[in-house]
Structures are given as structure tokens and as C-alpha cells.
Nucleic acid binder design. Structure first.
Lengths: 247, 247
DNA sequence: TCAAAAGTGTTATAGGTACACCCATGT
DNA sequence: ACATGGGTGTACCTATAACACTTTTGA
């Protein structure tokens, strides 16, 4: 009986719908929201803005913007990130679309969440027209957020944890030449979990796309580490063949 | 220099933007497209419609529809599925948002792709106002599709392959009580890959949420199989604890 | 010579793969 | 009795985890 009630409800909705002119459908907007995680020295942060205008004025929120009428989604996400961090060409990943009817007080706005991982030193976030303030927040101590941004942030946090074990999210974080320990520390921080040094190294040495260089560290007060390289061509070949590695 | 060119281009776009009235943003629409996979007797199919109206008339396409102004995305996806298959309450998963500028000839339409796995026997797809024809197609032999639906379908196909190893997508396919072999056949078909009988059974017996019943098969001309049950409560508990199983 | 981190090696265990073999039922 | 798929057991191999030990540098 419960199911027949549902069916009735649905039939009504459907009939209503036919009287809605096609224009009515073109009255919604979409936005992108960027969940930009920043890594530095074993700390994971996320970039938030403090809103300067009305819906949710003064609340902290994810940086985001409406998508321009002739702009691709990815482009919009890149733009938001670049405006705030002046970092160009960071690879971002689409995570999910959020579209609950009441999520935006000004009208029907669906938002597409994008996420990225970057280095957060020296990025003093640029002033922007949307924001009173822009600040890196530790992911372990977050303020209340505007709209449904808490849900979005949580989803994206989960997402980078899943992604980082098979996608090189860390290319935006590490310098050209890096040590295994640097890589291990990123994993430990993002996944909030310790790894055994020896075992981690064994994994790395099995991955052909992480190549040891002839060079090593300089001026460190301990045995200098071999520097490594990420070879994206080899990585792409592995991926094409459907190979899956996990850290 | 390439990067400075880019920056300039971006600045221009930004300045243009401020002259666009807010209303201009509320002139786009969104739709859901459903990639409904149908399993039956070791065959994986996908439900396609043949379009009866103009953009891409007569092309095969994914069933989809514009989202009504006061309708949630999930609800819209459910509605499309129900209209075609008369199956109520199938769990669908959001996969990705597709929003390239030129993807829809009538205007800016972003589409959110949803996917599900169902049993495809006895569903003689219902006539619908969008479609001349509705038909199950083998995933191994697909026609050319309208819009960017080939890309969407490919993405969703990948997606169920990834999902099925950790999510019980097969609850919509199997009867209440099922045999391990039935389950194994679904996995083999979806992943297009054979599994060893003995090893598969060992996995199943290790999963607490797949419970053997006292009952067994009847009227089969071989040793009757024990029937199993999916216990969703136990499954949810595992998931809450972040436990991950893979087949 | 000491601290600190790099880097190697060993062992125990868990889990996966392959495969052989027995079991219960209808015909 | 035999065909058919259900169900079990084992032996081998590989991946992983835990941990101890050696090496190289600057101070």
C-alpha cells in the first residue's frame, strides 16, 4: 500500500509537469565549489573564504562561483582556484554534484564540487570580490560552514583519501625532485595513518614510474637521500592498460 | 610567455563577466541521464531509447529528462527509471556531471549521470513520450548515440565495475534468496572476467552479511545449492566502521 | 663519536591462485 | 550409473607487516 501511495503521488507530479513551459526549466544556475586541500609539513589544510555578501554573510564557506554561460565546468573550477591562489594549471577532479532543492536561498542552484591537493606554503590567498577573508584551515578543526558546504567538504575529504592511493595527486605538492620520505609523509598526512619505512620503500621501488635519479640531497645532517622523479608518461601507459596500484 | 597569455585571457573574461546581469546565469537547465544496466543469464545490457523529437531525432540515446524546478536530482533519476521500467525504489548512484558548453544544441544543459543495475527479464520497457522505441542493448555492441551519451555510458560502465566490488549493486538483480553461483555469475558478467569457484565461495563465507539459510534449491538435476540472504543491517554496520571488502 | 634519517634484510603470517577431488540430486 | 553443478581441501606462492640492523652524512 505504501508503494501504491507513492505511485499516485508521482503520477500527480508528472501531470503537473506538462503544464510547465519549457522556459521554466531554464531558470536555474549552476556553480562550482572548490575544495582545495593544502599540504605542508605534515599538516593538511583546506582553503576557506569568509563570505562578504548576503546569503550567509560572515560565514566561512568553500570558494566557488557561478559558472559563466559559455564556460566549461573544469574551466570555472580552475578559475576559482587561480583567483585565490594564483596557481595556474593544477589538476582538479570532479567529485560530485549537489542539487537539493532548498540548498541555495536565492533560487535553484546546483553545484559541482571539484577538489585538488596543493602545497600551501607561500600562498597568501589573494583578495577577492566574494570574500572578506581567505584562510587555510586545519581539516581537524573546521568552523561551521555556509550552505551545504560541510557535506561537500566531507565528501571531498573522503574522495582525496580514495584517490591518492591510485592517482598522483601529490604532483602538485612535491618539487620536481623529491625523496621517498617526502612522499611517505604526504600519504601519512592525507590518510591520517602511519606506514612502515622499509615496506613503503619496497612499494616505491616496485613502481616503474617513480624513478631514482643519480642525484641526492645536499647539506642535510644525515645520510642524504636519493632523489626521485615522477615519470608521467610511464604512469599513463600503466593506466591505459588498466593496471591498478595501491599504496 | 604562454602562461602570461593565459593570464591575460583570463583577466578579460573576468572583466566581461561583471557586466553580465545575474539573471543571465539563471538561463541554463539541468537534466539527469540514466544508465540502466540490465543483467540476465550472463548477459549485460543497457537500456536505450530511440529519440522521437528533434535534436538527434531517431538516434539512440540514454533515457533522461530535464529536472523539474522543485525536484531533487535523485528523485528525477528515479522518475526516469520508473517511467521506463516500472521498477520502483531501485537504488541509483550518481556518477558524474557532464557540462561541456556545446553538448546540447538547444542551450546550456548540464547533465548529471546516474547508474543502476537491474534484472532485465520481463521488463518490456513502457512506452514514453520521449521515445519511439525503448530497447535493451548488449553492452558489447552499441549503436552510435546522441549528444555526448557515448562518453557518459562509457564512464558509467567503468563506474559499475568499480562499484560492484564494494557495493551491493546486485541486490536489485538477485531474488531474496539466491545461490553463490548466481552471485558469481553477476560478478563475472559485469567484470567480464572468470573467478575460481572454490576461491569465490571462500570469500563469500568470510562476509558476515551474506548469510546461508537452512533452505536449499528445489527440483534441480544436481546437488541442490544452499540459498543465501543479504543482510543489509550487518552490511551497513561494516560500512560505518569504514571496513572495505573487495571481491 | 653522536644524532638523525637513509636504506637493507629477515622472518612470520595472511591471503590469493590453481587444482584435485568428493557430494547430492534428477534422469 | 551418469551427468551436472554444489561444495571442500590442500599445496604453493606472493604480498604484507613488524622489526632489527647497517650506512652515510653534519655537527
Amino acid at each position: 500500500m505504501k508503494s501504491s501511495q507513492k505511485k499516485n503521488k508521482n503520477r500527480l507530479e508528472q501531470e503537473d509537469i506538462y503544464s510547465i513551459p519549457i522556459d521554466a526549466f531554464f531558470k536555474s544556475a549552476f556553480s562550482v565549489d572548490c575544495v582545495i586541500f593544502g599540504y605542508h609539513e605534515k599538516e593538511l589544510k583546506v582553503l576557506l573564504i569568509q563570505r562578504g555578501t548576503d546569503p550567509y554573510e560572515n560565514y566561512w564557506a568553500l570558494p566557488g562561483d557561478l559558472v559563466y554561460p559559455h564556460e566549461d565546468l573544469e574551466h570555472a573550477a580552475q578559475r576559482v582556484l587561480r583567483d585565490l591562489t594564483s596557481l595556474p594549471d593544477i589538476s582538479m577532479r570532479q567529485v560530485h554534484a549537489f542539487g537539493k532543492v532548498g540548498r541555495h536561498p536565492l533560487g535553484r542552484v546546483i553545484t559541482i564540487a571539484y577538489t585538488a591537493l596543493v602545497e600551501h606554503t607561500e600562498i597568501n590567498p589573494l583578495p577577492s570580490n566574494w570574500a572578506k577573508q581567505t584562510k587555510w584551515h586545519s581539516v581537524k578543526k573546521l568552523p561551521r560552514l555556509a550552505f551545504d558546504h560541510e557535506e561537500i567538504l566531507k565528501d571531498c575529504h573522503q574522495s582525496i583519501k580514495r584517490l591518492i592511493i591510485s592517482e598522483p595527486l601529490w604532483v602538485n605538492v612535491l618539487p620536481e625532485k623529491f625523496t621517498i620520505t617526502q612522499l611517505q609523509e604526504i600519504f601519512e598526512t592525507v590518510l591520517d595513518k602511519k606506514f612502515d619505512k622499509g615496506n613503503f620503500r619496497k612499494k616505491i621501488n616496485g613502481l616503474k614510474f617513480l624513478k631514482p635519479l643519480k642525484e641526492s640531497q645536499k647539506n642535510v645532517s644525515h645520510r642524504p637521500s636519493t632523489l626521485f622523479n615522477f615519470d608521467s608518461k610511464i604512469f599513463e601507459k600503466y593506466k591505459e592498460k588498466g593496471f591498478v596500484f595501491e599504496f
